[in-house]
Nucleic acid binder design. Structure first.
Lengths: 211, 211
DNA sequence: GCTGTTTTGTAACAAATGTTACATATCTTA
DNA sequence: TAAGATATGTAACATTTGTTACAAAACAGC
C-alpha cells in the first residue's frame, strides 16, 4: 500500500531503484489533524516525504509570537528538516498537520548517499530547496507589500486551495494567530470581505465565494 | 592571484582537487560599487562565489516596489542563482554590489557533476541553501515582529557589520528604498535614534555609536 | 429548558506608519 | 559667488493597525 502511494506521487520524480530503496528504509506514518510533526529546536533524524494531506509550517520568535510561513502539500518535503538532518543542526520551524496526513520518513543516513547515487534525488533536493526559497520570498512579498485586508484574503484563498475545500473550518482567533495580529482586526476585515461579497461568515466556518 | 584568494577563503571548505577544478573553469570578475550582478528574470549561466566585498540581494514585486532580503559576504554564494542555473529557471531577485567586490563565476555545467564527485561541494551547496533559508526566516521575523524603529536600527547595525565600517555612506532615501517605506518616515526615526544617542547624523553619512 | 463557555460583532480610542507640503541646509558647478 | 541640485528637518494631517471593553449570539452539557 505504501508502494502504491509512493508510485502515485513519486513515480515521475524518482528512478525505480530509488523508489525500491525508499520502500525498504522509509517509515510510513499517519498524522492526525493538529499532530505536531516537528517542533522548534528539534534535531531531525530524517526527512518527511509528504504522501497526502497538508502540513502547516510556522515560525516562532523568542517571545513566542508566531507567524505562518507556508503550507506543504503532497509531493513536498520539508527543506528545513533536510538541513537539520544532514548537518545535525536544529530546526528553526514548527510543523503541524493541518488535516490528516500521510508521510514517509527517510533516515538521514541515506540522504547524502543518494545524492551521489541518484540524479533524480539530486534534482528533487535542489528543487525542494528552490520551491521553499520561492515560497519564503512570496511570504516576504506578502508581509512587505500587502495591507492586512489583502493578506487576509490571500490567506483564505491559499488555505482553501491547500485544503481542497471552498469552506474553511476555523475561528477568527486561529487566523489571527497565523497572521500575527489580533482577533478584533481579523473580525473587522472579515466582515468587510463579507460586505464586498467575497466570503460568507458562519460560526467556525468561512465560505469563500470568490477566488 | 586568484588561487591565493581562493585558498584564503575556501581552503577549509573545499578539497584540493575541487580547488584545482575551480581554478581551471572559474571566471574571475571584479565588480564596481553598485554594479548589477543579477537582475530579476535573469537566466543564470553559472553561480558566483564571493571572494570579497558585499552583495545586496533585493526582491521586487510586479509594481516595482523593492525590499532588501539580505547581504552576501565573502565565502557566500547566491542560492537563488544556483537554483536558476541548475534548473534553467528564472531568478527571482536582483543582486547589486554594495561595494567593490570580487567573485568567481562557476559554469553551470559543473554544478551537478561536482555534487557527485565531491563531498565538500555537496556540503557547501546544502549549507548555502540552509544559510539562505535561515536568512530569509530572519527577514520574515523582522517584517512580522518588529516595529519600524527597531527594523531601522537593525538595518543600520547589520549593514555596518557587512561593510566592516562604523559609518555608513548613504542617504535617508536609499534606506527608505531598502526598507520599503518613505523617506520622511526614515528621517523621523533616524532623528529619534540620534536623540537616544545611538547614532549621529551627517549629510550622506550615518555614524553608529552603539552596537 | 438553564448555565457556562466559546465565538463573533462593534464602538471608541490609541499608536504606528504613510502622505503632503514646505523650509532649510549643504553640495556642485558654471 | 550665484544658481541649481540634492539632502535633510519638520509640521499637519490621513490611514492603517492595534487595544480595550462590552454585548450578543451560538453552542455544549446537563
Amino acid at each position: 500500500m505504501i508502494r502504491e502511494k509512493l508510485e502515485h506521487y513519486y513515480s515521475y520524480v524518482f528512478e525505480k531503484e530509488l523508489l525500491d530503496e525508499i520502500e525498504q528504509v522509509g517509515v510510513y506514518k499517519k498524522l492526525r489533524e493538529n499532530e505536531l510533526l516537528v517542533d522548534l529546536g528539534d534535531q531531525m533524524k530524517g526527512v518527511p516525504l509528504l504522501l497526502d494531506g497538508a502540513i502547516k509550517i510556522v515560525r516562532e520568535d523568542k517571545k513566542g509570537e508566531e507567524i505562518l510561513l507556508y503550507f506543504l502539500e503532497r509531493g513536498d518535503t520539508c527543506a528545513s528538516s533536510f538541513a537539520s538532518a544532514i548537518s545535525n543542526g536544529k530546526c528553526g520551524i514548527r510543523a503541524i498537520a493541518e488535516k490528516e496526513s500521510e508521510i514517509i520518513f527517510l533516515p538521514k543516513e541515506k540522504l547524502d548517499e543518494w545524492l551521489v547515487k541518484y540524479k533524480s534525488w539530486r534534482n528533487f533536493v535542489i528543487d525542494s530547496y528552490n520551491i521553499r526559497l520561492n515560497e519564503m520570498m512570496e511570504t516576504i512579498d506578502t508581509l512587505a507589500f500587502m495591507r492586512m485586508d489583502e493578506r487576509l484574503y490571500k490567506y483564505l484563498t491559499d488555505k482553501a486551495q491547500i485544503m481542497r475545500e471552498t469552506s474553511l473550518n476555523t475561528t477568527h482567533q486561529d487566523i489571527a494567530y497565523d497572521m500575527h495580529t489580533s482577533r478584533v482586526v481579523i473580525s473587522r476585515l472579515l466582515k468587510q470581505l463579507e460586505n464586498e461579497g467575497k466570503i460568507k461568515l458562519h460560526r467556525n466556518k468561512i465560505e469563500i465565494l470568490e477566488f
